[in-house]
Amino acid sequence: MIWAGVIAASAACYGLKLAGISLPQSWLQDARLQRTIPLIPIALLAALVATQTFSTGRHLVLDVRAAALAVAIIAVLLRAPFLVVVAAAAATAALLRLI
């Protein structure tokens, strides 16, 4: 099942890239499309941050992941590199669980 999803999503992502460089320029130059598409990653990434921090399955929970996110926010504000942000969050969660 995971394999089917991996293949389908990869094909979809490739199709979008290929469409961008192949379709006639005018198709994608529509002003509304140009304004809307950049908003999608912003909304999706924000929703991913929120749901993956404050939920387990369909239950809202507040646990060490919230503290890890706080540390990640500080790291981002300090312009830390990607891996440092992720490692700092993981280390925070791991340390708090040890206590």
Binding site: A8, A12, C13, K17, A19, L23, Q29, P38, I40, S55
Partner: peptide, 25 residues
């Protein structure tokens, strides 16, 4: 990883990939 279905994951991945079409343009 969060227990969502593979297809919800695939759909989200594809939606995030939409910006690549603009880059391609």
């Amino acid at each position: 990883g969060a227990g969502g279905s593979v297809w919800a994951g695939a759909a989200t991945a594809a939606l995030l990939g939409s910006r690549n079409a603009l880059y391609g343009l």
